[in-house]
């Protein structure tokens, strides 16, 4: 075991894993974190705690992760390269593991121009792939990036992200392969809506043997409404929402659109689980909709979660 985290154990035991997501508050409202966490308890194997997602300032990911541990859940501590140089990144992973955090997700991070402080300087000292390699080096070789020995190495299960829908399509699998080569233990994908394209992506990954080396978790985000679907299709870079989903949501009463979105999500999980053996789990991102995550996981027949 690399970290002995619940997520690692669930995957090692061959179970179809389920991870969730929780966005820390835009303030230090601890109750908000506990409140959201309570909806996910027993529903998912571990929970991604976003790191200033979309470059909007929020409570530190490590702190919200710690609160989650107190609540009896397991966090996937997200770390972006946008705001920290190699000194801070290495320091933070040491601090995070000292607090009991066992999973980390390494990301480049959305550019700050998308966020609420577009005038900020950025860092990007390392990129996501270099960050993965740095953490692997710290864990396995027990040294810092500069090869100096650690006084206590971080046992950490290393995650990374892949977006099968960004361009150029053919390069996406290669890049995911680079992340695996760098040391990723698990990969979570961007939200999937275009199933045929995702199937093609998974096939390429399987053909290249990548799904044997690393656990691939498919990203699922329920569409809450026609408005959200259209917004994602139009304004979120690298997001592929096919017209058929939008039409299907348009076909139901406005109040029922959310339910329909959840139905679509459940159908997608079934399809992935039953027809894509290369995929080892799902990452359910019910953004600001944590209270409905249970419906999705339950509907997909993935409850109760295994105890390992």
């Amino acid at each position: 075991m690399k970290s002995g985290s619940n997520l690692e154990k669930v995957l090692a035991a061959g179970h179809f894993a389920v991870t969730g997501e929780l966005g820390p508050p835009r303030g230090n409202n601890v109750e908000e974190v506990r409140h959201k966490a309570h909806f996910l308890k027993g529903i998912v194997d571990s929970v991604n705690i976003t790191d200033n997602q979309t470059a909007v300032v929020r409570m530190a990911s490590w702190a919200a992760s710690k609160i989650l541990i107190e609540e009896g859940l397991e966090p996937n501590y997200q770390m972006v390269c946008r705001d920290r140089n190699r000194i801070a990144l290495q320091s933070d992973i040491l601090g995070a593991t000292a607090l009991g955090i066992k999973n980390v997700l390494c990301l480049s991070g959305d550019h700050q121009r998308f966020g609420d402080h577009p005038e900020a300087k950025n860092v990007y000292d390392l990129d996501s792939i270099q960050l993965i390699a740095a953490f692997k080096k710290m864990r396995d070789d027990k040294v810092f990036l500069n090869d100096k020995e650690l006084d206590g190495a971080p046992g950490i299960f290393i995650g990374a992200a892949a977006n099968p829908f960004a361009d150029p399509f053919e390069w996406r699998v290669v890049r995911m392969g680079k992340k695996i080569t760098a040391g990723a233990d698990f990969i979570q994908t961007q939200c999937i809506y275009n199933m045929p394209k995702f199937r093609e992506f998974v096939k390429m990954a399987v053909d290249q043997g990548l799904t044997e080396q690393c656990a691939l978790l498919a990203g699922i985000t329920p569409l809450k409404s026609v408005g959200m679907a259209k917004y994602m299709a139009k304004f979120v870079p690298g997001m592929d929402v096919p017209e058929e989903h939008i039409k299907r949501l348009q076909g139901v009463d406005k109040k029922k659109q959310g339910d329909e979105g959840i139905k679509i999500a459940i159908e997608m999980i079934h399809e992935i689980r039953e027809t894509m053996p290369g995929v080892k789990g799902v990452h359910v991102m019910a953004i600001e909709w944590e209270h409905r995550a249970k419906e999705i996981v339950e509907g997909a027949g993935l409850l109760p979660r295994p105890v390992v």
């Binding site: 550019h111 700050q112 121009r113 577009p118 005038e119 900020a120 300087k121 950025n122």
Partner: peptide, 12 residues
């Protein structure tokens, strides 16, 4: 006050 770095390389 804090500088606006959008005009610098940080802004892309």
């Amino acid at each position: 006050p804090v500088k606006n770095w959008i005009t610098s390389r940080d802004g892309g």
